[in-house]
């Protein structure tokens, strides 16, 4: 079974040379730490920066340079700043190659719910609805089950949707799954996790074809 860093490490392998990548808040942010340093990748933050770097050294924080999580950041050589409409032009126009975000639920037809729990304080969708409605390549990073042990990979999402039919891949603490033909295809198992464990933790239709390899981290 993987921890959050393990999930991030596995997703980092999906980041290819020449990709512009948008990372959501939470586990997706950790992905930047594991991307191979022999490939050229730029991270976009939807509040208006391309070419995001690491957090600043203490004392070098700049209130005018933050990421979408409102954290102080730095920029890499070749970075650029832009307004919010230009930012979503990059996203809506499919110039960003890969979007990685967290979710509360994902369904077998690729719907995602990650912004609202009825009866609880609604904080808003931020940039998530724009991101999931536009990107062709959307990877969800999340735990396979919720705190009550219930599956987060469902036939149909029970929570209000963020987007419909958009998620292409899910990486959890247990497995890597691809979504196609309205089904979850099991691609890889987390180290030490059996197919049965994954099957029992998946409420949606799970397709298991042949031997399922263990992740190579």
């Amino acid at each position: 079974m993987l921890d959050k860093n393990g999930i991030a490490k596995r997703i980092a392998k999906e980041v290819k040379n020449g990709y512009y990548v948008n990372l959501g808040i939470g586990i997706p942010t950790l992905v930047a730490n594991f991307v191979r340093d022999d490939i050229e990748v730029e991270f976009q933050s939807e509040n208006g920066v391309l070419g995001m770097g690491p957090f600043p050294y203490e004392g070098e924080e700049d209130a005018d340079i933050i990421n979408a999580g409102k954290q102080t950041i730095t920029t890499m050589p070749g970075a650029s700043f832009f307004d919010s409409a230009t930012s979503f032009s990059m996203i809506r126009g499919k110039h960003v190659h890969l979007t990685i975000l967290g979710a509360m639920e994902v369904s077998e037809n690729g719907d995602i719910a990650n912004w609202k729990i009825p009866g609880k304080m609604v904080k808003g969708m931020g940039g998530a609805m724009g991101l999931v409605a536009s990107a062709d390549n959307i990877i969800v990073a999340m735990m396979h089950t919720n705190k009550r042990g219930e599956s987060k990979l469902l036939k149909r999402c029970s929570l209000p949707l963020t987007g419909v039919g958009c998620v292409t891949k899910v990486v959890t603490n247990l497995a890597v799954l691809e979504i196609k033909n309205n089904q979850f295809y099991l691609l890889e198992r987390a180290p030490g996790v059996s197919v049965e464990v994954i099957q029992n933790a998946t409420e949606g239709t799970l397709i298991i074809e042949g031997e399922i390899p263990e992740m190579n981290l």
């Binding site: 070098e60 933050i66 954290q71």
Partner: peptide, 12 residues
């Protein structure tokens, strides 16, 4: 005033 909402830094 330019307040910072989430001050995140790394150690040298």
């Amino acid at each position: 005033e330019k307040r910072i909402e989430q001050r995140t830094v790394r150690k040298r």
